[in-house]
Design a protein around this nucleic acid. Structure first.
Lengths: 188, 188
DNA sequence: TCTTTTTTGTATCGACTCGATACCTTTTAA
DNA sequence: TTAAAAGGTATCGAGTCGATACAAAAAAGA
């Protein structure tokens, strides 16, 4: 029964990252949660760039997310565009300014510094353990996985070397399948 | 260069823990940071139960911590006692109420549920990787380690099977050396 | 087709966090 | 003996976050 140990480590690592992220963000007037929103938007696909998707990913309420997005829009770090077919939905895109800023603060120097003293093999081991813990945590608690398309059961490979999503019934590019999706469901 | 991957996983795990911790705490009117403070006080030794030590551990400012402690004291989850020799310092102890509450919310059910589906061996692997990452992160960035006395270079074993800290020049019990200390320095 | 329900999103309010600054007391250094 | 450093509190403003209320569009039902 190592649940306590694992919890302790994740809590501590999370604290350190949060403190570091706060410090990194302060230079640019950003809060930790704002960095997380920008980070999400940088790695999600075009079906998952909506306020509701951000809400599900971060586990906050839609009101909270709406406020945060409003602030980030005012800072010109992102733009909103109404969906072509569904007028309720808006799509959020990082602006160039937003992308540049994000690259400056993620990952924080703390993590880069630590990884420099670890061998590539060790880093892979750690990444693998983290991935396994995360996956287990999500599945055991019936949480949305937000995985990349290439690991999704709705995704299939076409003859031409491209990809196709059977859920939204749209073709996907090589770049597309490396982004995370709110509809993601792991292959069985 | 896996720094980005590792950062992503830790960020996501931290988010999940924070959301879960918020939910667990809400039932008892506690904020995530308040749970972290209680958690720290439950595992630190008698030389590290001061407001300044909490400040260092959580990476916040002393003003912020002072406020949080004031709230927790009003909730009767902890008590403050002035130090015998140094009148500037106060020692914070969890009350019985505080200990009981903490046991209800840490670790959260999310982690317990996840660990139930993992073998003991897998859990050990993951815990080991997390520990290695944490240790590397702390050392590579010259951060305070807050380790347990048993892994500290100031700690020595006495003939009678007890322990002795060469820094504070005081004997330590078997229970003592399993607590974390703000003066901790890893053995070389 | 018309009505009801659901989904997506915004607005506002209050409790709380957090850093910054100022301030006090006690201890330590000069 | 005086100055500096350390531990701690008080207060303020910007911002998070949940809760509630609300609006508009889409989906479901009759």
């Amino acid at each position: 029964m190592k649940a306590n140990h694992i919890y302790d480590y994740v809590e501590r690592l999370g604290e350190l990252l949060r403190v570091d992220s706060r410090q990194a963000g302060t230079k640019h007037g950003l809060q930790p949660v704002q960095i997380e929103v920008l980070h999400y938007l940088a790695i999600c696909n075009r079906y998952s760039d909506t306020p509701m998707a951000v809400t599900e990913y971060l586990g906050l309420t839609k009101g909270t997310v709406s406020q945060t997005l409003k602030v980030l829009e005012k800072k010109e770090l992102l733009t909103k565009q109404l969906d072509d077919t569904d007028k309720r939905i808006s799509h959020i895109k990082l602006s160039t300014k937003g992308k540049n800023l994000l690259n400056k603060v993620v990952p924080t120097t703390m993590f880069v510094t630590a990884c420099e003293v670890l061998s590539d093999e060790k880093q892979s081991d750690i990444a693998s353990s983290l991935k396994q813990l995360l996956t287990t945590l999500l599945h055991a608690n019936d949480l949305k996985t937000f995985g990349v398309c290439s690991s999704c059961r709705y995704n299939s490979e076409t003859e031409g070397g491209g990809y196709f999503c059977k859920l939204v019934e749209q073709p996907l590019s090589v770049d597309d399948v490396q982004l995370i999706c709110r509809e993601h469901e792991s292959k069985v």
